[in-house]
Nucleic acid binder design. Structure first.
Length: 446
DNA sequence: TCTGGGGTCCTAGGACCC
DNA sequence: TCTGGGGTCCTAGGACCC
C-alpha cells in the first residue's frame, strides 16, 4: 500500500511577512499582487473578516482600514527564499520529496511503519516551525488525492496540524461530508457537471462508475475516482525543467505609445530569458501577446498574439528580443490603450541533450503546417506573408488574427452532418465496444 | 482610478502519408 | 449527397492547479 503526505504551509505569504514582524501575530494580515491590485494571501484573521481570495484591493480598502489590517505588497524574493528553507527541512525526514508549489510538497512515505507516522509528522511540523518560523499542516493517506483531503482535515479540525487517514470507516464518514468541489482536480465547472449527474460529495464520487466519470471528465476525472478509492494513479514526480517560461504584467497605467509597449515587451523578454538560462534551456519559439483592459467595457477592446519560431533554439537575450519585436510590429495597432502584455518562451530544449535532431523535426513540420494554412485560409496566408516579410529574425508560423471561431464553426458544419456529441459517441462505440481501462492509461508516465 | 502571474495535462480535429 | 481506413504529428482550446 502506497503512502503519501502533503505538507502545506498555512497562509504562506502572510506567514512569511509575520516571520519578520512577530507583533502581527493574532492580527489580520493580507498580501497584495504585483501592482497592488488584488489580495492574494490572507491570514486566518483576515479570512474571518470575509475577505475573499483574489479580491480587488479597491473594493476592500475601506474594510481593511476599518479593521486595521496589516497590508503588504508582495515580496517574491523573500517568499522564494523561505520556501527553499522549508523544502530543505523536509529532506531530513524522507528523501522522497516532490516540491509541488511554492508552499506545498508531497512526501513519499512508503518505508515508514504506520504506527510511527503521526509522531514522525508532528516532529516534522515542529522542526519546520522552529527553523523557519512557518506553520504547516500535514495530511497523510494512501494516495495524493486523499492526502490533499487529509491535509484539509488537518487544517480545519485538528489542534496539532497533523491528520493521518487510516481508519476506513471514519474515512467513509468524512468523505460523505466533503463537497466534490473541494477535491483536488475538481473545480466549480466540473463540480456542476458532477452535480447534474447526482454526484455531490467525495463519497458519491468514490462510488461512481469510473467509466461514466471518464466520459464526463476525461481520464483526469477517472484517475480521481481511483485515487479516492485508495488506488494510486498519481506518482511522486521528479523536479524537472519547465516546458514553458512566461513573463507578463499588467501596466500600472495604460499605454498608447508604441515605443512604451516595445520597452515593456523587451524587458519581459529579458526577464524570461534570465529564467531560461537559469534552468539551462534554450527556446525554439517565443509567443507574444498584448491586450487592452478587459474590465473597461466602455473602451474599444483589442487583444492579439503571435508566435515566432526561432531559426535555432537560443538563450540569447538579444536574439529573443529581436524576435519579440518582430512579432510586436505585427501585433501593434494605433488607437488603443494597452493594459497588459507578456511573452512566453516555448519549445524549450535542454542545453545538454541531442536537441539538434529534435529541433530539425520541428522545422520540418512547421514548413508543412504553413503549406496547410495556405490551403485553408487566404486571409491567414496574406497575413503570414506580410509578417514574414516584416521579420528580420526568425520565421513566424502562426498568428491568431484571422482565425475566427466563426470560421471554425462554419467549416465544421459543412463537413459533418451530426452534432459533435453524437459523432463522439459513435466513434467511441466503434473504437472500443468493450470498455477496458489499462493501468498504463491511468498512471501518468512522464 | 483601481480588478495577478505563473504553470500543467488532455482531447478533438486537421493535415499528411500509405 | 455521397465519397476508405489506418496511422502519426501538430495545434487550439478547454480544463485544472497554486
Amino acid at each position: 500500500m502506497s503512502c503519501y503526505a502533503l505538507v502545506d504551509c498555512n497562509n504562506f505569504y502572510a506567514s512569511c511577512e509575520r516571520v519578520f514582524q512577530p507583533a502581527l501575530t493574532g492580527r489580520p494580515v493580507v498580501v497584495l499582487s504585483n501592482n497592488d491590485g488584488c489580495i492574494i494571501a490572507r491570514s486566518d484573521e483576515a479570512k474571518a473578516l470575509g475577505i475573499p481570495m483574489g479580491a480587488p484591493l479597491h473594493e476592500y480598502a475601506p474594510l481593511l482600514k476599518r479593521q486595521k489590517v496589516a497590508v503588504f505588497s508582495s515580496n517574491y524574493a523573500l517568499y522564494g527564499d523561505i520556501s527553499a528553507r522549508v523544502m530543505d527541512q523536509l529532506t531530513f525526514f524522507t528523501p522522497d520529496v516532490e516540491v509541488y508549489s511554492i508552499d506545498e510538497a508531497f512526501l513519499g512515505l512508503d518505508g515508514f511503519t504506520p504506527a510511527m507516522l503521526p509522531d514522525h509528522m508532528r516532529q516534522l511540523r515542529r522542526s519546520i516551525r522552529q527553523w523557519t518560523g512557518i506553520p504547516v499542516s500535514v495530511g497523510v493517506a494512501p494516495t495524493k488525492t486523499l492526502a490533499k483531503l487529509a491535509n484539509r482535515i488537518a487544517k480545519k479540525y485538528t489542534s496539532d496540524g497533523v491528520y493521518v487517514m487510516d481508519d476506513p470507516e471514519l474515512m467513509t464518514r468524512i468523505l460523505g461530508d466533503i463537497e466534490v468541489e473541494d477535491i483536488w482536480g475538481i473545480s466549480k465547472r466540473w463540480g456542476a457537471r458532477l452535480r447534474r449527474m447526482g454526484i455531490g460529495t467525495a463519497l458519491q464520487l468514490r462510488q461512481a462508475s469510473p467509466r461514466q466519470i471518464r466520459q464526463a471528465l476525461s481520464v483526469v476525472g477517472e484517475r480521481i475516482v481511483h485515487e479516492l478509492n485508495g488506488r494510486s494513479c498519481l506518482a511522486l514526480e521528479e523536479i524537472q525543467p519547465r516546458k514553458t517560461i512566461m513573463s507578463s504584467r499588467s501596466f500600472g497605467t495604460m499605454i498608447s505609445n508604441r515605443s512604451d509597449l516595445e520597452e515593456a515587451v523587451a524587458s519581459y523578454t529579458a526577464r524570461a530569458a534570465e529564467k531560461l538560462r537559469r534552468q539551462r534551456s534554450r527556446a525554439g519559439g517565443i509567443y507574444v501577446f498584448i491586450r487592452t483592459n478587459r474590465f473597461r467595457q466602455q473602451d474599444p477592446q483589442y487583444s492579439n498574439a503571435a508566435m515566432v519560431g526561432m531559426d535555432e533554439a537560443t538563450s540569447d537575450t538579444a536574439k529573443l528580443i529581436r524576435a519579440a519585436m518582430g512579432a510586436l510590429r505585427h501585433l501593434w495597432r494605433a488607437g488603443y490603450r494597452y493594459h497588459k502584455a507578456g511573452v512566453m518562451l516555448t519549445d524549450l530544449v535542454d542545453d545538454h541533450g541531442d536537441q539538434a535532431s529534435l529541433f530539425q523535426t520541428h522545422l520540418y513540420t512547421r514548413g508543412r503546417d504553413m503549406a496547410a494554412e495556405r490551403k485553408t485560409s487566404d486571409r491567414r496566408m496574406a497575413a503570414l506573408d506580410q509578417i514574414n516579410a516584416a521579420m528580420g529574425q526568425g520565421t513566424l508560423f502562426h498568428a491568431t488574427e484571422g482565425l475566427t471561431p466563426g470560421g471554425h464553426h462554419h467549416r465544421e458544419k459543412r463537413r459533418h452532418n451530426l452534432p459533435k456529441a453524437e459523432r463522439w459517441r459513435m466513434r467511441a462505440q466503434f473504437k472500443s465496444p468493450a470498455y477496458t481501462t489499462r493501468w498504463s492509461d491511468l498512471v501518468r508516465v512522464r
